[in-house]
Amino acid sequence: MPGVEPTTTRAALHEFCTARFGAELAARVVSLARPGFELTRAAPGEAAGNSRFGGRPLLEPGTPWPTCEGVPLSLFAVLDTDALAPWLDGLIPAGTGLLNFFYLDYDSEPCDPAAAEVASKFRWNASELGAVIAARSGHAVEVDPPARSSVFAPIPWAASPGFTFPDLFDPAWRTPWAEPDDYDEDIEYISNYASIHNLDPDNDWTSRPGAIIAENLAFGWPIFPTGSSPFYRNGEDPNLYHHLLQLSDQDEWRIGGDGGWMHWSIPTKALRSGDFSQAIPTPDIW
Rank of each mutant, 00 (worst) to 15 (best):
T8P: 00
F21L: 15
E185Y: 12
A178W: 01
L25W: 02
E38N: 15
L98V: 07
S74K: 01
C17S: 10
I212T: 09
W253E: 14
S74D: 02
D237H: 11
N192H: 15
L39D: 10
L240P: 03
A153P: 11
P222C: 10
A33L: 07
Y193P: 04
I190T: 08
V30F: 02
P146N: 01
A23F: 07
G138E: 05
Q278I: 05
V141I: 13
A23C: 04
N100A: 00
L25Y: 01
Y183N: 06
G138Q: 07
P267I: 13
V141W: 01
T8L: 07
L247Q: 14
P230K: 09
D237N: 15
I190N: 10
V71M: 01
N216M: 06
A11R: 09
R56D: 10
H242N: 12
R41I: 07
A85H: 10
P6W: 09
F122D: 04
P180L: 06
A135P: 14
S248H: 11
T40G: 11
G210P: 01
I223P: 00
A178R: 11
T7F: 04
R34F: 02
A147T: 14
D170M: 05
A77F: 05
D200A: 14
P222I: 14
A115R: 04
T63K: 00
E185C: 11
F231E: 09
F169Q: 12
V143R: 13
L271K: 13
P180C: 05
F219C: 00
H263A: 05
L247F: 07
F219S: 01
F37C: 13
D181L: 12
D251V: 07
I190L: 13
L13A: 03
D284H: 01
D251Q: 08
G55L: 06
G36P: 04
T175Y: 08
P281I: 09
G235E: 02
P238K: 10
G259A: 08
W124V: 12
T226S: 15
R56H: 14
T268S: 15
S195A: 15
D186R: 12
A158G: 14
E185W: 13
D249R: 12
V30C: 11
P222N: 12
E24T: 06
W221R: 00
L245C: 06
D170T: 08
L129R: 00
A115V: 00
E236V: 13
P110W: 02
S277M: 08
T18W: 03
S137P: 07
S74Y: 00
P156G: 01
W177N: 05
P171I: 08
A153G: 12
A83W: 03
G130H: 04
L58I: 06
P154M: 01
H14R: 11
D184C: 07
R174K: 15
A131L: 10
S150L: 05
S273A: 15
F37E: 14
A194M: 15
P154V: 03
C111P: 03
S248E: 09
G259T: 09
S31Y: 05
I190E: 00
A172W: 03
R174M: 08
L88G: 02
D275W: 13
L39G: 09
A126M: 12
P110F: 00
T63Q: 06
F21H: 12
V78Q: 02
R136P: 04
T164D: 02
V71E: 01
P156A: 00
G162S: 03
Q278Y: 11
